[in-house]
Structures are given as C-alpha cells and as structure tokens.
Simulated assay, not measured.
Amino acid sequence: MFTDVEGFTAIAESMPADVLMRQLTDYFNLATRVFARHGGVIDKFMGDGIMVLWGAPTDLPDAEYRACAASLELHAEMTELNRRWQAEGLQPFRTRIGMHTGIVIAGVLGSSDRLSYTALGDVINAASRIEGTNKQLGTRTLMSEATFEGLGGRLATRRIEEQIELRGRQTRMVLYELLEVEHQPR
C-alpha cells in the first residue's frame, strides 16, 4: 500500500513549517495506529506519503481484507481529524491510497553505512503507480485486480471500466475503487 496527501505541495506552501510538521505528525500517528490495528507494517515515510506492507516480514492471512479495512478506517478517522483541524483554521488532508498484491523481496537493503528494512519488486512499483492513478480518476482508494480477488467480495468496490495504463509500465491493469459506504458487510 502507498498513501499520499492530495495537494500536499500547495498545503505546504500555504503554512508555516512548524504548523505543517504538527499536522503531519498528527496524521502519521493516526495512520500508524490504524495500520497496526489491521496488521500493517510501515516500511517508510516518504514526505507526506507512507509505504505499508501486509504479509511482510511474516505471512499474514487475509492481507487484502485487512489492508482494505485499514483504508476505510483511515478515511473515517481522517474525517474526524480534519473536522478538528478545520475548527482550528487548518487545512484538511485528503488521503489517496493504492494497493496491489503479489510476491516481493523483503529484507534489509542499503549501503555498508546505512541499512533499512524494505520490500522491492514489480508489485511495489505497481502499488505506487496505482496510488498515483487516483489523481487522474478523482478517486481516493484504488486496488489492483489481484487485491480485489483476495478481498473476496467482502467490501463494496467498483470496477474501473477501462484498463488503466500506469505511468512507466508497459502492461495495462484492471483497477477497482474501494467504496466508502456507511454499512460495509463484515
């Protein structure tokens, strides 16, 4: 999973750095709690974005459902946080999410001076590109067909009617939007 705050560059430009840092810290703390509740492991923070793994470093049954449930919970909790921020005169954050399922290589990578745990592979690149596709489609949460299949119809989704060409990739993908409805089936 990759997350991104929509319009973050404009938000950052419009406020003092200390206020922006406070908001990002609040957002990251909230997201970290949500992801952990659903078995997600944060790989890294990248500016305003987050890379999250389900099923690494250890196998996790039902990873697709857990990631989708975390996405829905993050959006719901962000609605509350945004209300508080707006009452304080601060800009809201609208989070976009992209998810893909598959086999990756996960482990410690880096140089002899600096190492970090991460995951690599086409699945990671595709998930990042799927997240970015939200911008062109005006959606908040997109997933690959592989993630959709792992979800098993337990949450409301909408198939994107045309196969999407993801930036930098040669093959098109079928994508699904995870829908935010009040009473999702369990």
Rank of each mutant, 00 (worst) to 15 (best):
P92T: 06
G138K: 00
H100S: 04
F93V: 01
T118F: 02
T101P: 03
A127M: 12
L90W: 15
L109M: 15
S112M: 00
G121W: 04
R129S: 12
G107L: 14
I103H: 05
S111C: 03
A126Q: 02
G121P: 07
L137T: 06
I124Q: 04
R129L: 13
L109I: 13
G89F: 14
I105E: 09
A126T: 14
R114G: 09
A119Q: 02
G110W: 05
G138C: 05
I103C: 02
A119I: 09
Y117F: 15
K135H: 07
N125P: 07
G89C: 11
A126M: 05
G110T: 02
G89A: 10
Q136R: 08
R129A: 15
S116A: 14
H100Y: 12
A127I: 09
L109S: 13
E131H: 06
G110V: 04
M99W: 10
G121K: 07
D113H: 11
N125L: 03
P92C: 02
V104F: 05
D113K: 09
V123F: 02
I124P: 03
A106D: 10
P92K: 03
D122R: 11
R129K: 11
L90Q: 15
I103V: 04
Q91Y: 15
T101F: 11
Q136F: 00
R96Q: 12
H100G: 01
N125E: 06
R114V: 08
A106L: 04
S116L: 09
A126P: 00
T118Y: 05
N125W: 08
L137D: 13
R96M: 09
L115S: 10
H100T: 02
V104N: 00
Q136T: 08
P92L: 02
N134I: 08
R114K: 15
G98V: 09
T95V: 15
S128R: 07
R114I: 08
V108S: 14
V104I: 09
T95M: 14
G121Y: 05
R94H: 08
G138L: 04
G110D: 02
H100K: 06
G121Q: 07
R114T: 14
V104E: 00
R114Q: 13
S116V: 09
L120V: 03
P92I: 04
D113G: 12
A106E: 13
E131A: 06
I130K: 00
N125I: 03
V123Q: 03
S111Q: 05
I97N: 15
D113R: 12
V108W: 14
R96W: 11
S116I: 05
S128T: 07
G138F: 01
G121F: 05
G102Y: 01
Q136C: 02
A127L: 12
I130P: 00
I130H: 00
I130W: 01
Q136S: 10
I105R: 03
E131Y: 08
I103N: 03
V104L: 10
T118C: 14
L120Q: 02
S112Y: 01
R129D: 08
Y117E: 13
L120A: 00
T101G: 06
A119H: 01
G110S: 01
V123I: 01
Q136W: 01
G121E: 04
S112A: 06
G132K: 06
T133M: 11
G107A: 12
R129F: 14
R94L: 06
Q136P: 01
A126R: 06
R94T: 12
M99N: 10
R96G: 06
P92Y: 07
T95P: 07
G110Q: 03
N134Q: 05
I103L: 10
F93L: 06
S111M: 03
